[in-house]
Design a protein around this nucleic acid. Structure first.
Lengths: 218, 218
DNA sequence: TAGATTGTTAATCGATTAACAATC
DNA sequence: TAGATTGTTAATCGATTAACAATC
């Protein structure tokens, strides 16, 4: 179960926020955006922004910053967000629907071309123009669509079984929103999106703040 | 805009997955769970699990592992997940509804006591027993409920305005699911949940794999 | 007892930050 | 030109991993 170890993972995770700012600068008609400006906007160190951007190969101009168009192109190319990628959503509940409808993903090349749900009420309907199919159509549809990316938003109890089916049908990358540690073959990519760890961070920060307040009062 | 810098943030983020395994062990009737077992299950190094768990103060038993009950208690206490925390959801769309209905959060002490939405269709209804109010009731309701935590799932365009209103109404911690870098006073905690960065990681892993396959073929 | 596992101390690794020359 | 900003090289910092004694 070796996985694809990403170098510069923290930098990669910050790139989308740089991309957003670059796009805003573009909309605003700016020709250049400096690392310093990005850093101020995002509350980061300028050197960190420059270091992060360097992995995309973008070259800036002293005194001006980075040319906005090429910067956007460089980040999108580095992330492969300038190529269309088709995906299916499995589990068309609220979370699955939210992800299907989120316009940001399509902008990043991710097209949700089908959804699947166990609820007969949902089958046959569309969610933001995406058709929803019954779960027993999963294998056939994934194969015929030739889709290789799946977004998994089913109840934990079904996660492993469905993941296994997805892989059998040809899925090679799973964006996993369940808290189940999926067991899949080595060559299949799993990107876990764990909301609990985000909540753990929020909780710790609140705790930390309360400790600081107590200390202040002394 | 200094923020609460969390020491051991990576460890904190892993704690919820350890907690889940400990609870599963408990359901299974196990008395002990070893760091080695947890590591195998989660594809981590045993030493990392031990190091992470040590921050909670739990003490294990050589040859046996960690006592399951006390381990659960130690993690929950460290994360403050054994205390009830009330919160409101702002934006009762699909994402807000998903988070409101997610049973995991209530298990971790987070109770969504009210939701707010701009859509008149939703106002007056309930989502998983949580009442939805109109946006103009936000300030009054937050204050009268005495809630200090808010989950923000509104369209980006409204995020900053609403955050400002939330803070004015007494909110001191915001779980931010928008891609807007919120400007709030120093003492207000913002936990950003950025789905784009997760998708960036998935994209890079796919790219990395395709590079490796090309290399293999040579 | 023997051996698996914990917990501590030290070493390594990688990410962040600092310093500064290059340059537009 | 003067000075802000880039990009590189080096230093620092923090997280992960290794080594190993303690122990049940």
């Amino acid at each position: 179960m070796a996985r694809f170890k990403v170098s510069y993972a923290p930098s990669v995770r910050r790139l989308p926020s740089y991309l957003l700012l670059a796009k805003q600068a573009q909309d605003h008609g700016d020709e250049y955006i400096s690392g310093t400006m990005i850093a101020i906007e995002l509350n980061l160190e300028p050197i960190q922004v420059r270091k992060d951007l360097s992995i995309t190969g973008i070259v800036g101009k002293p005194k001006r910053g980075y040319p906005v168009g090429p910067l956007i192109a460089a980040i999108e190319s580095y992330l492969n967000w300038d190529t269309r990628v088709d995906a299916v959503v499995v589990g068309a509940g609220n979370l699955g629907s939210a992800l299907t409808g989120f316009p940001g993903f399509k902008q990043h090349g991710l097209h949700i071309v089908a959804g699947f749900d166990a609820d007969p009420e949902k089958v046959g309907a569309t969610i933001y123009d995406t058709p929803i199919y019954a779960m027993d159509k999963l294998d056939e549809r994934v194969q015929s669509l030739g889709v290789t990316v799946a977004v998994l938003t089913v109840p934990s109890a079904y996660a492993q079984d469905i993941a296994t089916r997805l892989v059998a049908a040809g899925i090679t990358a799973i964006w996993n929103f369940t808290n189940v540690k999926l067991k899949v073959p080595d060559e299949v990519i799993v990107q876990n999106e764990d909301l609990s760890s985000g909540y753990a961070m929020l909780s710790i920060k609140r705790h930390l703040r309360s400790l600081m307040k107590t200390a202040d009062a002394e």
